[in-house]
Design a binder for these strands. Sequence first.
DNA 1: CTAAAATCCTGGTGGC
DNA 2: TGCCACCAGGATTTTA
Length: 273
Amino acid sequence: MSMPELPEVETIVNGLRGPLIGRTVTGVRVRWENIVVTSAVAEFGRRIRGQRILGIRRRGKYLVFELSRGDRLIIHLKMTGQLMLRPGDAPADPHGHTIFDLDDGNQLRFIDPRKFGRVYLVADEKEVVGNLGPEPLADDFTLAGFVALVRKRKGALKPLLLNQQFIAGIGNIYADEALFVAGIHPQRKADTLTDGEIERLYQAIRQVLRQALADQGTTFDGAYRQVDGREGRHQENLMVFRRKGQPCPCCGGAIKRIVVGGRGTYFCPRCQG
DNA sequence: CTAAAATCCTGGTGGC
DNA sequence: TGCCACCAGGATTTTA
């Protein structure tokens, strides 16, 4: 279980740009048809073949590949998806569900044991990422803007932070970490927050994501890896996530695990009262 | 409107 | 030790 979130996806994108920009896709093999969402597999292969990769970006937890005929190849790794570059004659990966052949003889392989990940090929990326909320690390994501967004909501904060239409890129790990840094209980209702608490949450979200990005992401059980196969380092710096029963780094009390909105949620009952 | 539950998947875990 | 039921988890869809 790894759940690539904003820092992990951004790290992967950074690792893909060098080897992939300027390459042309010469063929594609889809070994699990449900992976491809927006068109039939035959149409997908026909349409992507011959397109050159001009740029690679991240939007939320999606990877967006800008292709030379104007199409966008969009990939979501969901829980256990990995993107690996391999020589074309490398042994097959056990869960390599989609293989992109490149004009330099290498392959981009989408590997996903749980088969949750998805691949899209669209002319207009809004079809896939058009409803996402703001990017939390972007310059135009301001405190005033965040206050205005929170003031429109009244539900519990944990599910709100996981809602990609509210804010893009945060998943289970960084929602828990940000709420801990802000000192706010995951079940607090959005409409009970003071201005000061909203500001603390805003700063906490950005601090946690920046730190995780500097650590090149969080790897559990080897599921998330960078393109070169290396693991992230942020698992060593987590404060509450997956730390049930261990001491809170702030007060020393035991970290608790509860379920909020159907998701495992870790927090410190004393610091996040 | 919101919220909860079902859905998709399978490796890992815990119980016996 | 071996078997097996069950769980996690992002996003979407369905139900209340």
